[in-house]
Design a protein around this nucleic acid. Structure first.
Length: 115
DNA sequence: CGGTTGACTGTTT
DNA sequence: TAAACAGCCAACC
């Protein structure tokens, strides 16, 4: 496995995250599967954790399978809540997001460019 | 080369 | 419901 393969995997993952529409969310595992990398949910998290500060990738639209903002050190959790609220994604008092309602479903949106 | 880590997940208590 | 557990796997060191 070459460095280029790795960069390509990363690029595919970020491309999927970038395609999550405003006001919708996706889970780490979902992103990994969409990118053709099942079982790599943690890789998705890793990439988002390492995003450069100026990145335009909508990292805040990625949450865990429990419908919650994934716990992590730092203050980005509050920022994520704010960004989501700003686009109309409702969080329950307990901090839960209704996936049945807000989950992004690629098939129902823009036709996916087949490859 | 081998052990550790972690923005994860599905199953079981 | 929620916590504990056990898999998982690329990246890191």
């Amino acid at each position: 496995m070459t460095r280029r393969d790795r960069d390509e995997r990363h690029a595919r993952i970020l491309a999927v995250v970038d395609s999550i529409p405003r006001g919708r969310v996706a889970t780490y595992g979902q992103i990994a599967r969409e990118a053709g990398l099942p079982r790599n949910a943690r890789l998705v998290g890793r990439l988002l954790a390492n995003l450069p500060s100026g990145s335009k990738i909508p990292w805040h639209r990625v949450i865990n399978s429990a419908g919650q903002i994934s716990p992590r050190p730092g203050s980005s959790i509050a920022r994520q809540r704010r960004l989501l609220a700003r686009e109309g994604v409702r969080l329950s008092p307990a901090g839960r997001i209704d996936l049945a309602r807000f989950r992004w479903q690629p098939a129902d949106d823009e036709p996916r460019a087949a490859r």
